[in-house]
Design a protein around this nucleic acid. Sequence first.
DNA 1: GCCTGTTTCGAACAGCATTTGAATTCCGTC
DNA 2: GACGGAATTCAAATGCTGTTCGAAACAGGC
Lengths: 211, 211
Amino acid sequence: MSTRTSVTANRLLDACQALLCETDAHEELTTRRIAEHAQATPSAIIYHFGSREELITAVAERVYRRLNAERLALLRRAVDRRFPEPADLDEVIAALVGPSIRWAADPQSSYPVLSYFTSMAHAHRDDTAHYRRIIEDVQHHKAFIPELKRIAPWLDEVDIGWRLNCALGIRSQVTRSRQRTELLTDHQMNLDDPELVIARMVEVIAPMFRR
Amino acid sequence: MSTRTSVTANRLLDACQALLCETDAHEELTTRRIAEHAQATPSAIIYHFGSREELITAVAERVYRRLNAERLALLRRAVDRRFPEPADLDEVIAALVGPSIRWAADPQSSYPVLSYFTSMAHAHRDDTAHYRRIIEDVQHHKAFIPELKRIAPWLDEVDIGWRLNCALGIRSQVTRSRQRTELLTDHQMNLDDPELVIARMVEVIAPMFRR
DNA sequence: GCCTGTTTCGAACAGCATTTGAATTCCGTC
DNA sequence: GACGGAATTCAAATGCTGTTCGAAACAGGC
């Protein structure tokens, strides 16, 4: 196997990402089509990544990293703005859920990669690390715990983690089950405006951290 | 195609469900293996159901129906207990999320079917009805709206639907991302005890519907 | 007995991810 | 510039997959 950094490897990553974002027909995400799109052969995928799944995982990891960086940058900004006082709760929650919501609403973004990847990781719940590894990486989320603890010191760390987890569940529901959200709200909510959706989420999540 | 009710069709449904529940290796959910387990041939799957996916969908539908019935029975019980007063909020929320949580915690249950099915339906977001049909069926969830409206009359129907949707997101997070939940709560929460988890969820969801 | 419609089955087919081994390209060293 | 060994590419082959097809087996009404 190679270093995963050759020009071909990068073209494969880009091709895979493009196919995941452009089309909704993920049936067509075959090694042959990815390779064709990258001007390579299916064997190149195996050579550089070991398997088709590991290529997809590598793509997802790239995208995840960008999303996480955005999240953490927003958290830092929220903290800095009030330091040394605790950050504003609404702003921290917006930092937590905002990037996902904005990406999911933007048809230009790479969000479909994450959407597809998490579905797959859940379906193959068995499996050899490489799917789960990314899904279970909660370090960036854990970064929110200390600040939330400062905001709501009467909650212990378990309570904070539990509420954080619930907030993430709400986020997933909104980003990944858009149509269900629409049906339950009778199409009265404008899900195309991410800032409005974020405000709605803050409105529901913030009370979890209040007395 | 047949009526889907012949003895062979039923054996195929049972075999598919058994394979989905028994093993974690869903790679192995092939037409040949399902057929073998049902003492039939792969062609029988096509003949009775049209495709492998439609067989899986039929299995999921069967399981969904049972879960929904359980949910609605609990809702009715909660309503009847206080009639003509509005039902107890905590009890209504427990009716909404309880069955899923209990099924997910019970290794004997058919919950893996739903877990697998929803993942697949999300991954193939493109697609021809037959996956989505079940996922987007929110009628049983909508049944909760009128009662929640009686409990929290100061919220309009959109607010209720939105909060209901958020509650479902929390439920999904807990049932489907168990390990993430464990990590965020530092393994301090006993996720094996469904009643304890339900109580924790009520504690977080109920405030959404309070003034 | 036959005939019609339903159900089963085995043999094919196209497509898939991956393996293999040979061919090609690359690059530091002579 | 030429050599040698490693890194990379590729075409062909392997063993899966879901599905198609046509022939066989079976059913029940006349």
